[in-house]
């Protein structure tokens, strides 16, 4: 107990974020047990506001909002985390190589980053979904493959500034090869902004999925928060609860991941770590 207290005192944001994310994961896993109704079941209680029977109300088809949110957490988490991870890995590697090696590698990779930045990713996704059909997996991959450019730009900047630091020069002087310096020094020291950017990436991936769902291109067989918000948009004046609780769920998720990212930042960087200890 004392240990837990100490941990919370030491890394308040990380612990808080992890707790929030833990709740989210539990909800996602136990959705069938926690949900009072089947989210796909229609009922006669259409557009009912929050009440004892339907805590978060129902939508225009009489589906229970609470159950939809609980089930929707699965879709959102899977899409958000997976595509943000894909984006983080690709962006970090490409950005770090471009920034550290510089010269021609930087020129070529920089142009590749620019090309990917110029492609309107949303329309790319639309085309792919239109061509190959919609599905959770495809949406995930496509979002990941189109949203790494921000990470790459950040990592390139980090690598550029780390490259001239004495400890990198010192490692070179001692005889370390460049690949090893990249993995051992450049990436670990430059990863912090990527961590927080990835938490933002999770949020934007969730939003991207919502947008697709809004356009009717999401996976129609799964419930998602985006779909819920899109559905409720037309009823904002008469049935605020339909979009409202979906929005709250997205905010909750984003905040949770932001806390985790920020907390990790503190732990991974000993300089900040020691300041918080004092």
């Amino acid at each position: 107990m004392k240990k837990v207290k100490h941990l919370i005192h030491r890394y308040p944001r990380l612990i808080f974020g992890l707790c929030m994310a833990f709740v989210l994961v539990i909800v996602a896993v136990l959705a069938p047990l926690l949900s009072p109704y089947n989210p796909y079941d229609l009922s006669d209680d259409m557009m009912v506001g929050p009440s004892a029977a339907h805590w978060f109300g129902t939508d225009k088809l009489g589906r229970d909002i609470l159950s939809m949110i609980l089930y929707g957490s699965r879709t959102s988490l899977i899409i958000g985390i997976s595509s943000a991870m894909i984006a983080a890995v690709i962006g970090t590697i490409i950005g770090a190589i471009a920034g550290y090696l510089g010269g021609k590698a930087d020129l070529i990779l920089g142009e590749i980053i620019n090309i990917f930045m110029m492609i309107p990713s949303f329309f790319l996704i639309l085309i792919i979904v239109a061509l190959f059909g919609s599905g959770l997996f495809k949406v995930m991959i496509v979002i990941g493959l189109t949203s790494w450019t921000g990470n790459a730009k950040i990592m390139r900047g980090q690598a550029l500034s780390l490259r001239s630091r004495t400890f990198v020069k010192a490692s070179e002087a001692v005889g370390e090869n460049r690949m090893k310096i990249l993995i051992k020094h450049i990436i670990p020291n430059g990863i912090f902004p990527i961590v927080s950017n990835t938490t933002m990436g999770i949020a934007s991936a969730i939003l991207m999925e919502s947008s697709l769902a809004f356009l009717g291109l999401g996976d129609p067989n799964t419930v998602s928060w985006g779909q819920l918000i899109a559905n409720g948009k037309a009823y904002l004046t008469s049935g605020w609860w339909i979009s409202f609780f979906g929005g709250i769920a997205i905010i909750y998720t984003v905040v949770a991941f932001f806390f985790i990212g920020d907390g990790l930042n503190v732990i991974l960087n000993p300089k900040i770590r020691n300041v918080t200890n004092v």
Binding site: R165, F167, K169, A170, A173, H185, L268, N269
Partner: peptide, 15 residues
């Protein structure tokens, strides 16, 4: 050939 750098605070990776 080895080198000792000017800034000792930045010569090592703090992690």
């Amino acid at each position: 050939a080895q080198m000792v750098f000017q800034n000792p605070f930045d010569t090592f990776d703090n992690r």
